[in-house]
Amino acid sequence: MSLSVSAEFLGGLDQIFGKVRQSTLTVPEGSTIKDLLQLIVQQHLENPKDICMFLDDDNEGIRAGILVLINDVDWELEGELEYELEHKDVVTFTSTLHGG
């Protein structure tokens, strides 16, 4: 069985994903956020050089300055990388904004 999951790229993050702000991905049952990150990089990252704009130095976690929300809840409350995705989950990635 595969699940349908929605990913959102806000706060300017869409710039590295071909200006896509919302995308639907299909993942195998049992997938975690960690798996989703890899899938997003494979399917949506336009320029491989920009991976450091999304993932951290070992290309496994999320880079500092990006907030991750699972169904509008901080991923820290949901298990972060190990959170197991459910059908129709919405995972939101947003850059921290600094402008004023």
Binding site: L10, G11, G12, C52, R63, A64, G65, L67, T94, T96, L97, H98, G99, G100
Partner: peptide, 29 residues
Amino acid sequence: SGIRTEGQLSIFNHLNGPCYRCFFPNPPA
């Protein structure tokens, strides 16, 4: 904070809630 057409708003260090560093322990690279 904000840029382009977007913005963000939070309250920190109020009523025993989190601070900015709780949200962002590490600065953006």
